[in-house]
Structures are given as structure tokens and as C-alpha cells.
Design a protein around this nucleic acid. Sequence first.
DNA 1: ACTATATGCAACTATTTAGTTGCCTTTCAA
DNA 2: TTGAAAGGCAACTAAATAGTTGCATATAGT
Lengths: 107, 107
Amino acid sequence: MSMDAVFKALADPVRRQLLDSLHARNGQTLGELCEGRGMSRQAVTKHLAVLETANLVATERRGREKLHYLNPVPIHEIADRWIGKYERGRLDALAALKRDLEGQSDG
Amino acid sequence: MSMDAVFKALADPVRRQLLDSLHARNGQTLGELCEGRGMSRQAVTKHLAVLETANLVATERRGREKLHYLNPVPIHEIADRWIGKYERGRLDALAALKRDLEGQSDG
DNA sequence: ACTATATGCAACTATTTAGTTGCCTTTCAA
DNA sequence: TTGAAAGGCAACTAAATAGTTGCATATAGT
């Protein structure tokens, strides 16, 4: 639920790649998610646990396999509540930045 | 430039608060950004350095003061290139998630 | 039953990170 | 020119993080 957990989860490139992988093909097993990642299975497990805690990934046990599903809702919430506010005034702020940084020095 | 630096910078709540503060009032000095934060000036300085490295904050020296300006461009780029792709298929993925997680158990 | 496969758990290490304190430099103002 | 205000630099500590290895458990297939 906490936004902090989501931001922290997104801070690691490996975890973002895992989300990308699930985005490309949802419902992958742990083994599949480990392939070609040059890292031990346990390391990937830990990353997936972080993503699960942040509610970015949901899992389901099927027999001896564990299937992983992307949950895009927290990302949507971040984009909505936090990033949106910076984008709204984006051009204004950009103009102000230019004015402040360049307008002071010389003319 | 690197997206990783931006994500890492956004991962810390103190740094997000600093961005929020600059969003509310741009061009604050270091001293102003330290006020009411319950943390040493040097700690805040380090956080601001991280934000500067990620190009989320630009600074200008004015006399003995250092002014800080929010740069919303990297946030926009993240929203554009990375978050956007998860939002586009959001409802689809959500439906798939529900189907996968609930539809399997019973029938 | 036996074996291979898929995953879980736990201890350990190395690196990074967030914060501190102490001291130095620069600038403004009397 | 002297003192106070604003900030910079560097060393240190504590905690979190990312990764490892070794072993245990559970399931599938024969």
C-alpha cells in the first residue's frame, strides 16, 4: 500500500527488468524469470519478494511452480498522484528554470 | 541522463519531500530546504546532491546562498517512456490478473 | 519408491546508503 | 577588519541492500 515501497521497488534495474519481462509475458515461473539474468535463483527470488511486498507482482502456486503476474495498479497510482503533479506545470516550470538560470548571469 | 539515477533518487522519501517543497516554492536556499526537516544540514546537502546528479534539481550560487530549482523533465521522461507502457495495457492486464488468479482455483 | 525438478529458508559477506560530527571557506554587514 | 551567516569538505558509524552458498522441502514422472 505504501508509496515508498513502490518507489523503492522500482529503484533497482533488475526489478524493473523483471517487470518488463512480465509485461512482455505474464504468468512466468520463477525459473523462467531467472533465465539469462546472470544471477543466482535466490537473488531473483529476493527481488521478486520486494516486488510482491510493493504489490507490483502477484503470485500463484501451481503444483511445484510459482507463477508471477504483473500488477500495474501501483504504478498507475504513482503516475496519477505524484508524477502527474510535476507534469501539469511542466512547461511553466521549465520556462521558469530557464529564466532563473540564464536570466541571472548576464543580461 | 541515466534513468536509473532518477529512479534511485526518487526512492527516498526525504528526497521526494524536497522535490515537493521545491514544487511548492521554487528557488529555495539550502537553509530554507533544511528547515523543519529534523536532520542535519549535511544530510540534506547529500540528498540534494543525489537529486542534482539525477538532474532533478539545478542549482545556482547567489552570493553566499545556493538556490535550488526543480527540473521536472526527467520525471516527465520516466512517465513517458516507462510508466506509460504499463498504463496503456492497464485494464487488460488487470482483467488478465483477475482471470488468472481467480479463474484457476475452482472453476 | 526413486529421482529429478522447482522452489523455500537461513546464514553469511560485501557494498551502498543515510546519517552524524568536526572543521574549513566564502560572503555580507557593521 | 572582525564577526556572524551560509555553505563545502571529509572522516566516521550504523543500517540497509544485493548478492552468495548450503541445505531443506515439495511435487512430478517413471
